[in-house]
Amino acid sequence: MYMDQLNQAVKGGIAPFHEYLLQGSIVDSSKDVLVHRLRGLCDNADSNPEAFHDHEMIFSLKGSPQQQPMTVYLRHSLIQTDCWHLRYVGSTEFGDKTRQTLVRSCVDIGVSDSIVKFLNEIGFKLEYEFVAKGYFFHKGRMKVTVSKLFKMNIQGDVNNIDPLTLSCLVELSVVVPTGQEQVGEDMKNFAEQLKPLVQLEKVDHRRQQQAAT
């Protein structure tokens, strides 16, 4: 019964959702200025910005060559330790110049704490992990995160960490059902207001990976 409803939902474009994404970075010394501006621009300006401190683990399932590998992103909040969040991200559509943002399908699932054991038992292996600390803002349905990424010196030890770079990752994203192209325009306008502090752009990860290799 549920599967039928679900299949309908998938066909109807309700699930999975599409994520529109812009990314940028800012050096640590200017982070406070950006946070301050975001506080002014976003909702709930009168309360303190919401801080997060997450441990992200990336698992993937690789079978035989005939099988398409599958990767999932697991986030575990180190502030609210019973919060676990699993995310599956589909293939990225970079689009042409007329498209303002990166678009990718994604599935966001809240899960219970047995998830690590569960993934391991059905064959997923831990690929890499990191710790992210930062602030979260929202304006309407737009979500802005300013996060500092840390590498973990010992596997699984979230206290023994070192910063990865001298800057912070800034991400602007919106998750909507299929076919709401208007969102890209809104995001571009918002990103415009953060200039020249931070330049939010659509980043082609595949090209970056190719350049790295």
Binding site: L6, A15, P16, Y88, I109, V111, S112, S114, K117, F118
Partner: peptide, 16 residues
């Protein structure tokens, strides 16, 4: 091992 997840977990099972 028992995992409790949002109903969207079905989508993931579907992918698997």
């Amino acid at each position: 091992t028992t995992l409790i997840a949002d109903v969207l977990f079905d989508v993931l099972i579907h992918k698997l």
